[in-house]
Design a protein around this nucleic acid. Structure first.
Lengths: 342, 342
DNA sequence: TTGTATGCGTTATCAT
DNA sequence: ATGATAACGCATACAA
């Protein structure tokens, strides 16, 4: 089951001209005779000629392709980022190779290697949850492969980064809960090794401190993002001797099962427990109560991510230094945290 | 910003041996001297050698890569299918190139062409919403490129197909609503050009007929899957002179905004209107009321899709005839359609 | 304007 | 066990 595809050579032979002429005609080089070009184009069309990208790229030593590695495309944030990145890349004349790590550091390394072997000219990535060592990423730096990290970054990695101000976002969200009258605010956070989660915890603490509220360590819970673990953590936070009256949740995906458990337990949201989350997935607006959350400028983040990568790609020499972009967030207040009119 | 990567040639020169020896050693061919191999491996490691996949594929005239085209990865169904397909492909030694059409037939064509040029050995795809002509797809058949369609297929396309029994699924869902006491059941369907939607409408009609209920054409509404249009259609179906008491919705994504509008209007679900949808996204279980729906065996569908493709890929000659696989569905009854105990 | 020859990095065939 | 050398399909510098 394989039919030999038509090559430039076939067109050349059929027309009794050289392959270089055909190659030039096909690519619309100006020096070609109008008639020759017409004949070539016509025959190419008729034979349904498709240039072999492998050969083209090899000959040109250039692929105009960038690799994108994300933890999981079934998270709204990542698939939306991918869309935005793809769009921006396309506009700049690059195509995109996408890989999912499924939160495995091992796969991350494998994908990285595959992308390198596929001769991508740069890489955009968001680290997997389990990644706590960075040799595989640092290899890129050593090989001088342009790299931009977004969202899930690490301080130890020398690369351009695009992120939101996680500290400020959590700070704002916490202050909002305080304004709503919450005094015992907890945090259903992410895995302890996630920088992004820790930054948010810091913002949450600072907000509590600023408003003279006690920072209680065991009001912080860590979900590993899986459903089951989230349920366990939720049950734990619900059974605190003195119940919480406000809660930050690390992501909408984590908030969904958490809210479900709470409602099963008969908790009234937001009266008993006001909830604010992160990511602002579209569905969150449709829940009852609708879910408050911090929204990230996904569109802009994608554009900036690509911009930073292109900057490195087109940098004259070893010139460009890593740049870090911190994007603003927006707190979207909905029913789950709205206790009284302001 | 580009450092010349190390090639086989570099290793050969450094070791004063021929490139063929290096190539063989690297690939673990048995005829190589143990010492030679060790030296090569060691140096390759030290120089961080990565084979150029373009060159390898070109030389081998083989990529072991399959292309996957889906409408949008931010739909749960498609990202889940991708995961399943990728897993199955990986196990068979193939890697996957993913493209999104964003429901545009134009992009679909462009992606198809790119994949062909990238020398993928086969293609798995789900048609975009706007695709109503199939030349670009039929070109594959003409070029003898193995093809499997899933979910969004078309009768006119000669290819292997994997789908669920949409007629039966809608039939079951409708019967379930009837059992719940619904007598005026509507359908918030998908775009009229979507085969899958029409099949479900047929199943819905047949169920009504079987139970002696009138089939009313204007109880069928068509959403184009966008938020705004869904809202408009929902408002329309809510303002029928004689209100519906049961509703099928073409997908969970469509159901979310629809349910939201209904609740805003003060409708009680399921008491006033019982709702059943399609796809059974994970979030649907977390809504209040939780959403009933038809679930598809995504895992199996992915596996079967890949199996059918491999069957064509490894078919001795032009042999293999297109095969159509119809997978079973499961009706998941939740609160949105459960009116009374059975 | 067109043709020839060489290279892109690897694999594979045929010698040795 | 190793080495030349010809593919793979295309681009391009240099000639004509």
């Amino acid at each position: 089951m394989k039919v030999t595809p038509v090559r430039i050579k076939d067109i050349a032979q059929a027309l009794n001209i050289s392959i270089s002429t055909v190659s030039r005609a096909l690519r619309g080089m100006p020096e070609i005779n109008v008639e020759t070009r017409k004949a070539v184009m016509q025959l190419a069309e008729a034979m349904d000629y498709q240039p072999n990208q492998l050969a083209t790229n090899l000959a040109r030593s250039r692929t105009r392709t960038i690799g994108v590695i994300v933890p999981n495309l079934s998270y709204y944030f990542f698939s939306a980022m991918l869309n935005s990145i793809e769009e921006a890349a396309l506009q700049a004349g690059y195509s995109v190779l996408v890989c999912q790590t499924n939160e495995s550091s091992l796969r991350e390394g494998a994908h990285l290697q595959n992308l390198l072997r596929s001769q991508v000219e740069g890489i955009i990535m968001s680290l997997s949850r389990d990644t706590d060592r960075y040799e595989h990423v640092e290899r890129l730096t050593r090989r001088n492969v342009p790299l931009v990290l977004f969202d899930r970054y690490a301080d130890d990695i020398q690369a351009s980064k695009v992120m939101v101000d996680n500290h400020e976002a959590a700070f704002k969200a916490t202050e909002h809960l305080i304004e709503q009258g919450c005094r015992r605010i907890g945090f259903l956070a992410g895995p302890p090794q996630l920088l992004l989660s820790n930054r948010r915890i810091a913002g949450y603490r600072d907000a509590l401190l600023k408003h003279g509220l006690p920072v209680v360590d065991h009001h912080i819970f860590h979900s590993d993002y899986t459903h089951d673990n989230t349920v366990i953590q939720t049950l734990a936070l619900l059974s605190l001797p003195e119940p919480l009256d406000g809660l930050l949740v690390i992501s909408d995906r984590t908030a969904y099962p958490a809210l479900y458990v709470m409602k099963q337990r008969g908790l009234r949201i937001p009266e008993d427990l006001a909830v604010v989350s992160f990511n602002n997935e579209p569905v969150s607006a449709f829940l009852s109560p609708s879910l408050s959350g911090v929204s990230q400028p996904i569109q802009e983040m994608g554009i900036e991510t690509v911009r930073l990568l292109l900057a490195q790609l087109e940098a004259p020499e070893e010139g460009s230094v890593p740049e870090t972009l911190v994007m603003p967030t927006q707190l979207i207040v909905r029913e789950s945290s709205l206790r009284r009119r302001t």
